[in-house]
């Protein structure tokens, strides 16, 4: 695990020095900052708008960053042939894969913290310091982002970048719609359609589980029990995804 950590730190350092992610981060901060433009609303409505836009911005741009960094984390090593030297060292392929995962999460965490601090700063500026519900929402968003990154990273172990980027965005959209699809499936009497939706609902990550912002924005409290349950769902899903990634990196011919 120590070697995986070193590989992770190296990945983190690489991203920091490349600076390409900063563009995405700046755009995200501009979007979050733009939520202040709704100053013509009442103070309460404006606060809701700031929270809604900021949560959505952090989640959307966080997802973009997660997909972008995990997409290139492995393929860059292969394209630049640095993987040959790395695999000649006393590390396992699992060390490499988990190291890339650590590195990706570190970059994601840094970006997430910067976006969140900016958002919290806005709330404090509006004399409405964040309550625990805000932090619960942010926590679930971050777990969702980890899941998105891990799936893209796993697909990168066996598929091309082009396929991976399409697949990851498709999954991001479907993952947010699967709950609605499931509700529709409950209403249909077509057994095949129902079965297909149930399978899809089980296999595809249900990203909507991590979305509590609609409730938090309007002041509905979300229990710790729900956060814990959703967190466990995220961790279990993550474990399965990482196992699949480890299997494919082991099999892959470089």
């Amino acid at each position: 695990m120590k070697k995986a950590w070193f590989i992770g730190l190296n990945t983190f350092k690489e991203s920091l020095r490349k600076k390409t992610l900063y563009i995405l981060l700046v755009v995200a901060l501009v979007v979050i900052g733009a939520s202040k433009a709704f100053s013509f609303l009442t103070a309460e409505e404006e606060l809701k708008m700031i929270k809604d836009v900021s949560f959505s911005g952090i989640e959307f741009f966080g997802a973009l960053i997660a997909i972008f960094i995990s997409l290139t984390a492995i393929s860059n090593e292969i394209e630049k042939r640095t993987i040959y030297t790395l695999f000649s060292k006393p590390i396992t392929r699992q060390n490499f894969f988990i190291g890339k995962f650590f590195g990706t999460i570190l970059i994601l965490l840094l970006n997430f913290i910067l976006m969140s601090l900016f958002f919290i700063g806005l709330l404090i500026f509006k004399k409405s310091p964040p309550d625990i519900q805000v932090f619960k929402t942010l926590l679930l968003i971050f777990i969702e982002l980890i899941l998105i990154a891990s799936i893209t990273l796993t697909v990168a172990t066996f598929a091309s970048d082009a396929f991976n980027v399409i697949f990851s965005f498709f999954l991001y959209i479907v993952g947010h719609l699967t709950s609605y699809g499931n509700q529709l499936a409950d209403r249909t009497e077509n057994v095949i359609l129902k079965g297909l939706w149930k399978i899809l609902h089980t296999v595809v990550p249900n990203y909507e589980n991590f979305n509590i912002r609609d409730k938090v924005v309007v002041g509905i409290d979300v229990s710790w029990q729900y956060i814990f349950k959703t967190g466990i769902y995220g961790i279990l899903y993550l474990a399965v995804v990482l196992l699949i990634g480890s299997y494919f990196i082991q099999k892959r011919e470089i």
Binding site: E14, K18, T85, S88
Partner: peptide
């Protein structure tokens, strides 16, 4: 592998280091 050193052909390394 702890006892082996390797130099690849046209070595490519992490160019930001």
């Amino acid at each position: 592998k702890k006892n082996v050193g390797f130099l690849p052909e046209n070595p490519y390394y992490y160019d930001y280091l």
